[in-house]
Each structure stands twice: as structure tokens, then as C-alpha cells.
Design a protein around this nucleic acid. Structure first.
Length: 570
RNA sequence: CGGGGCGUAGCGCAGCCCGGUAGCGCGCUUGGUUUGGGACCAAGAUGUCGGAGGUUCGAAUCCUCUCGCCCCGACCA
């Protein structure tokens, strides 16, 4: 490719609404342009990246035995009504009416459509298993689209659906996809981690998320460096401390803590550690006749609403007025003492605390030296209510957890019969009896991967793309292209030879000033660069520099092609 | 949805409080000089000041409505 025949449109300054580096750099490098909130045009340079990601995904899916098809982006409402998601899926589902006033949706996912296809075309166990996938533009009307292509409303996704005669076979394909995804993200040149997304059901194999590791990631991940345990923080189990509760050593005492509301402030004021604080979170349970309840957590721990929901049922946080009504005290000083008619739930960690500090249910006062069984009833309703924190024991018993952040780029599920049942997708088994198919579902956020790769690979000069997805593998920068015949000839020669060798090469024949060219190619993240200039030509030298290095090396003109080839393929 | 902020040239911003008919940097055009790290000089072009309505002799500026975009939203218990 010649730069003059292509379209390079870089920006010195990023538009002010771009928040994270990948978004800023994608805009500056001219990879994407915004059309509306969460909706972007892929510019020629960006499209090359997107297509490379797509190609790798496609190759590996095909290799794994999945079959590509393409389903409509627009789907009739009937299918969604049948599966029940017409009601379930909130405003995120973009709905509209056609000219005949019939309801349609712009597909955010395709379980309904694929299940419909399969139930029409597959009748016998002899036709199973089958795995269909597509790479297609989806639309989800996100409440808050942000981070450019990372959380857009319109995005490119690979979604695959497998159909099986037995759960055993579904598990087999699930394992196959786990390996395939691992291969895909490895080939893409990304640092990633497979994370258990649903450890509660089916022994931790029911669902895995694949995360690209990046500090700006939206998801918090707990992982164990000593084993392969990794889980979304929301789902990671906070294991109960092994040691028994210590016996009380202090008497309960009321202390004035004026104006100290936050646990950290109270702990500091009292000169104790925050680990000896217990905080009470007031909730209202929807299904209970007596909805008001307290959940006790250690001062430095955070409530995990998903876990809590599973234990106490649906709930919301109590309003200040409700707290006053039940405890006669304003938030900030509430605690579990003297709360006769209030249900109390206790986190595992709290259940093993003694001599702790908590609110006195009296404005401006806390209690110290509080102990279960003595100052308040023995603990009841003990469960895991909190988010894990770094240093917690790993649930697999093999060391301690660490936390990191990730960007979810892949997700594999064992759907089982949720959709096949709703949409009556069955086949005739060996006995000639109708049987509901088992389904698996496997997604990869193709466009999101581009953003994630940039989050992971950038420096002060711009993007640093992995070779596999860089828009070009190598750029030839001739200094004085328009002026010096020798430079021009030599640059073309090297360009031709590298092209002939199968390299994805771009020749910058725009005759720009060197500084402009260098800045552009560094911004756009081209991994390798060869510079040809009059100066070097006199010595019979060209220069090579990798995007990740700051110094160029001189290479004799006669060897530069072979040298560059070696570097690119390195 | 609740709260906050912003819409002025392609991009980044000033001007608004205190009304008087719009400016800076980058980019763009033309000419010249330059040519190994986002050049310099000169001359230019580009705005329904997001939209509608109102107040006023006069509105980017004040008022009302509207549209768009951005940010924040358990960690007080």
C-alpha cells in the first residue's frame, strides 16, 4: 500500500470527550470517527485492524469445527416474545415498528434466531452436534455508552451457538471452545486471563469470561497466582477465616464519636484498626412482612449485592427515614445492639470477630469491646456477604488472592435448554423419541478487542500494536521522497521486495516532512519502520527501528530487506 | 432515572458574569523559503455562536423551552 493512495487522517489533539487512552488514541490515529453516542465509523486504517482481528477469529473458529453463517440484524418481535425476552430485556433492546406497525428489534444477540433456524433444519440426532457462528454488527442501547469502541452501542461481535444431543457433548464442545478462545487471544498477541463467571452452578465450568488485563478495565478480577483460579470479584467466594473466634477480653463501653460517620474516621479517631470495626448496612427486603434488616460487615469490607440478593432475597437500601424509624438513630451510628425486632445477617468474617467496635444506635456514639453472645445475641444467618479483597485465601485453598482489572472480550456459556425449550427446538433421538437440544453459546467482542489491545499496548508516542493486528506490519519512510531520485528508487525497491515477500507493508510516499511521518507512524502503532534518506544512502545504509525501541540501527542497503523480514516475522 | 457540566471554525479553547454584531492555537488554501523528529515568512478561506421562542434599539452574552454530548451515582449505615 502506498500512503498517497490510502487515507491517513491523524489529529494532534484528541477530542475532549474521549476519556481513556485507547479511545483518545483511536480518534487521534484516525482509526474511528464518532457519528453519534456509542456509534462509530471505522476509518480505513481502523478497519484494517478490525479485519485482522476478525480473520483470526474466523480462522480459529473454522479450525475448531464451527460453521459460519450470517443472520439478520433485524428480527421480528414474535421470536423474542416466544423466548420471553421481549419482556425481560429492558430498554437496552432497540425496538421499532415497520410500516405495517409490526414490532421488530435490532438484534443484540441471536439465540432466538439461531434456535429457530436449527429447529427447522435439524430433526435427527444424526445431524448433531452442530456449531454455527457469525461475525456481525450488533446493537445494544446502552444507558451510558463510553470509552469509544469499548462500550459502544453498535459493535462487531462473533457469536456462536452449538447444539447437542446430550449435556455430555455440550461439555465437550465447551472445552473445545475454551481451548479455541485461548488460542485466539494468544494469536492476537494479548495478555489475557480466563475467569470463572459462574462458579456457583455446574461445578465452575458453566461459564467463563475471557479478560484482557488492563488497569482501565471495567471488571475487577480476583485471581490466585499460585493456581489457575480466577473469578470475577462479584462472584469470587470470600472464604471464612480458619481460626476460631477469640474470647472477649474487653468490657463493652460507649464512647462519644462526634461527627465521625465513616468507619475509617471512627477507627482513626479511636486509634484502632479499621479491621476491628463492624458496620451495619440497613436494607429493606421486598418479600418480607418485616422488611427492615441489617447486614453486618467488617469496616473495611464492601457489601456484594449479588451475593446478598441470593441470601436475603431481593432488597434495596433503606432510606434514612426508615433507619430512624427502626433504630431511632441516624445513619452513621447504627449497629446491631438493642435491635430486638430486626433481622440480622452476619458476614462470615464478622462472625469470628471479638472486642469489635460498632455504632451505638445513638447519634454521636459508638460502642467498643463488643462481643457476640455477651453483648448481643450469638451470631445468626452467617454467610458470605462481601467482595473479596487482595490477600483473602483463594477458594481453592492454594494461596492468597490478588486483584486486577480486565476488559471482557470473550464469554462462553453452557446455555443448556433455556432457549431450545422455549422455542421448542427438539430432535429425534436414537430411540425415535423427541428430545430437547442442549445449547452452548460463545461470544467474542471483535470491535472491543481493538480498544482492549490499545489499552494494553501504548506509550507516550501512541499506539503499540501487536504484529497480528497492526494495520500494517512495516512502514517505509523515505526522507526526501519528492526531491531525491535515489531515495525514491531505493524506497520503491525495498517496498516491492517486502511486498513480494508477503509483508503487509506501507510506503509513505506523501513527501511529508520527516517529523510528520515519524509521528504519524508511531501514533498509528506500526510495529516496524525502515527509513531511507539521502544521508544514509551515501554510506549505503538504511535504518531500521522497532516501534518498541527508541534507537534505530543502521543496516546495509543490500541486507535491509532480509533484515526487516526477519524482524517482522521474528 | 437522579445529580452535575458542556455545546462558539475540522480539532483544542477564549469571549458570556458586566448585551454593542466573534477571537486565539493547531489544521486548511496560495506563494516563497525550508527538508532526518509534528518547519518558517507572507497573504488568505472557514462560523445560521446546537435549535426554537422571548426580553431589548441591539443577544454568543439575559430568560424559557428543546436537542445533543460528557461526567458522577453502595462504600453514610
Amino acid at each position: 500500500m502506498r500512503a498517497s493512495q490510502f487515507f491517513i487522517s491523524t489529529l494532534k489533539e484528541a477530542p475532549s470527550d474521549a476519556e481513556i487512552v485507547s479511545h483518545q488514541l483511536m480518534l487521534r490515529a484516525g482509526l474511528i470517527r464518532r457519528l453519534a453516542g456509542g456509534i462509530y465509523t471505522w476509518m480505513p486504517l481502523g478497519l484494517r485492524v478490525l479485519r485482522k482481528v476478525e480473520a483470526i477469529v474466523r480462522e480459529e473458529m473454522n479450525r475448531a469445527g464451527a460453521i459460519e453463517l450470517l443472520m439478520p440484524a433485524v428480527q421480528p418481535a414474535e421470536l423474542w416474545q416466544e423466548s420471553g425476552r421481549w419482556e425481560q430485556y429492558g430498554p437496552e433492546l432497540l425496538r421499532f415498528k415497520d410500516r405495517h406497525q409490526r414490532d421488530f428489534v435490532v438484534g443484540p444477540t441471536h439465540e432466538e434466531v439461531i434456535t429457530d433456524v436449527v429447529k427447522r433444519d435439524i430433526r435427527s440426532y444424526r445431524q448433531l452436534p452442530r456449531h454455527f457462528y457469525q461475525i456481525q454488527t450488533k446493537f445494544r442501547d446502552e444507558i451510558r455508552p463510553r470509552f469509544g469502541v469499548m462500550r459502544g452501542r453498535e459493535f462487531l461481535m462473533k457469536d456462536g451457538y452449538s447444539f447437542h444431543a446430550s449435556f455430555e457433548d455440550l461439555k465437550r464442545e465447551y472445552g473445545n471452545m475454551f481451548e479455541t478462545y485461548t488460542r485466539i487471544f494468544t494469536r492476537l498477541g494479548l495478555s489475557f486471563r480466563a475467569v470463572a463467571a459462574d462458579p456457583g452452578s455446574i461445578g465452575g465450568t458453566g461459564s467463563h469470561e475471557f479478560h484482557v488485563l488492563a488497569d482501565s478495565g471495567e471488571d475487577a478480577i480476583a485471581f490466585c497466582p499460585a493456581s489457575d483460579y480466577a473469578a470475577n470479584v462479584e462472584l469470587a467466594e470470600a472464604v471464612a477465616p480458619a481460626q476460631p473466634r477469640q474470647a472477649p477480653t474487653k468490657a463493652m463501653q460507649e464512647v462519644a464519636t462526634p461527627g465521625k460517620i465513616k468507619c475509617a474516621d471512627v477507627a482513626e479517631f479511636l486509634g484502632t484498626g479499621i479491621e476491628s470495626m463492624v458496620k451495619a448496612i440497613a436494607i429493606m427486603r421486598e418479600a418480607e412482612a418485616n422488611p427492615f434488616a441489617l447486614i453486618l460487615l467488617r469496616g473495611d469490607h464492601d457489601l456484594n449485592e449479588i451475593k446478598a440478593q441470593k441470601i436475603v432475597g431481593r432488597f434495596r437500601f433503606a432510606a434514612d427515614a426508615e433507619i430512624e424509624q427502626h433504630l431511632g438513630c441516624r445513619p452513621g451510628y447504627i449497629g446491631p445492639i438493642g435491635t430486638d425486632n430486626v433481622a440480622i445477617f452476619t458476614d462470615r468474617t464478622v462472625a469470628l470477630m471479638s472486642d469489635f467496635v460498632c455504632g451505638a444506635n445513638k447519634p454521636g456514639f459508638h460502642l467498643t469491646g463488643v462481643n457476640f453472645a455477651r453483648d448481643l445475641p450469638e451470631v445468626a444467618n452467617v454467610a458470605d456477604f462481601r467482595n473479596v479483597v487482595a490477600g483473602d485465601p483463594s477458594p481453592d485453598g492454594k494461596g492468597r488472592l490478588e486483584l486486577c482489572r480486565g476488559i471482557e472480550v470473550g464469554h462462553i456459556f453452557q446455555l443448556r435448554t433455556k432457549y431450545s425449550e422455549a422455542l421448542k427446538c427438539s430432535f429425534l433421538n436414537e430411540e425415535g423419541q423427541p428430545q430437547i437440544m442442549e445449547m452452548g453459546c460463545y461470544g467474542i467482542g471483535v470491535s472491543r478487542i481493538v480498544g482492549a489491545a490499545i489499552e494494553q499496548g501504548h506509550d507516550a508516542r501512541g499506539i503499540v500494536f501487536p504484529r497480528a493486528i497492526a494495520p500494517f506490519e512495516i512502514v517505509i519512510v523515505p526522507v526526501g521522497f519528492g526531491k531525491c531520485v535515489a531515495v525514491r528508487e531505493e524506497a520503491k525497491r525495498i517496498y516491492d521486495e517486502l511486498s513480494a515477500a508477503g509483508m503487509d507493508v506501507i510506503l509513505d510516499d506523501r513527501d511529508e516532512r520527516p517529523g510528520v511521518m515519524f509521528a504519524d507512524w508511531e501514533l498509528t502503532g506500526i510495529p516496524h519502520r525502515v527509513v531511507i534518506g539521502e544521508r544514509g544512502l551515501k554510506e549505503g545504509m538504511a535504518e531500521y527501528q522497532s516501534r518498541t525501541e527508541t534507537e534505530a540501527v543502521k543496516v546495509p542497503l543490500s541486507k535491509i530487506v532480509a533484515f526487516a523480514q526477519l524482524k517482522v516475522c521474528g
